[in-house]
Design a protein around this nucleic acid. Structure first.
Lengths: 185, 185
DNA sequence: GTCTATATAAGGATAGAC
DNA sequence: GTCTATCCTTATATAGAC
């Protein structure tokens, strides 16, 4: 792995663990085993490196979600698979957590990949819900976009509850509750 | 307002805006219009002051939620009132956001009020759902604890989606989606 | 109780040698 | 491309005057 790659990977880890504000160039360099010079040679500075890291993380998250949501099964089963997917619950969402970072939200550039990723996943789910409505699996009264927002929010909020309590139980409970509401009878 | 109170209030604001990691004593002092000495006279340091601020914020949030959830109406109506309650969506939840703060989660003391508050609200909602089941307003197959987690998660995750997109729309969509799933027919 | 030094470390970046 | 040296600012805390 190139030095540039190691820098990006270290930044990704730290952004996930400590967020943008809580991540210092020094910590990144130590984790990557690189010196100051390397970082400022490959990147303009902390925001530039963070942008590269965020883009890579966002891309990965999106690809994973597309894989699960695009899998086999009925619309309900695909949403179920997404919700029950294996997750490192207590670590939270590496993309969603960035929305609590004031400097990320304040930067049009840093926020863009976060927004686009969550939006893309939302659209995917919305399409699946509409599909389920056509097939009679979901009530016609449901709105695809709204349910998609509910699904994503339950996941993102589940991380919050889990981290507050220090246990994944609350995340699982929220997901089960949502599935019980969505379940085709 | 006493100096001690001004320090706590300034800290509350900053914790909400920038989180624990992103809040410096210096910023607190400037906002409170106090000097270094005052802060270290009234509090042992940043963690101690933050604890006082978090406790006050948590207490307020809990009281507000209890007021809305304990209001008049059927179980569904009370949950609806909670979900549709006026919120400063783009600012996010002053308590929930702390779960993304590594230093808060790492501290048993700082995390406790966060956990207790969210848990208390969860229990309140769970009780209301059980009540609704008895009254036949909610399906007997629903689990109060699970639905409560879903409701809270939708709110907490709604903030994430809203902040990602820079608009409250996603929060509102998630809430409407959840209400459409919960709606007694 | 509050203020103004003062202190040590860390944050973030640049310069220039190799 | 990478390293070390250096720089200025901020973070967090202590000391001691008023």
């Amino acid at each position: 792995m190139s030095t540039s790659d190691r820098l990006i990977e270290s930044t990704r880890e730290l952004l996930w663990e400590r967020g943008y504000v809580g991540t210092s160039p020094k910590a990144i360099l130590e984790r990557a085993g690189a010196g100051q010079g390397s970082m400022y040679h490959h990147f303009k500075g902390k925001p530039d490196l963070a942008l590269a890291a965020i883009r890579r993380t966002a891309e990965e998250l999106r690809a994973g979600a597309e894989r699960v949501l695009g899998g086999p099964g009925t619309p309900y089963e695909r949403i179920e698979a997404y919700l029950l997917r294996e997750r490192d619950v207590l670590r939270g969402c590496p993309v969603g957590r960035l929305t609590m970072d004031p400097d990320v939200v304040a930067s049009e550039e840093l926020r863009a990949p976060v927004d686009e990723t969550l939006d893309a996943i939302r659209e995917l789910i919305a399409g699946i819900v509409e599909e389920g409505k056509e097939q009679g699996q979901f009530a016609p009264s449901l709105d695809g976009e709204e349910i998609a927002a509910t699904v994503l929010a339950t996941v993102q909020g589940g991380y919050v509850l889990a981290r507050a309590s220090g246990s994944p139980a609350a995340f699982d409970a929220g997901v089960r509750g949502l599935l019980s509401l969505l379940a085709p009878r």
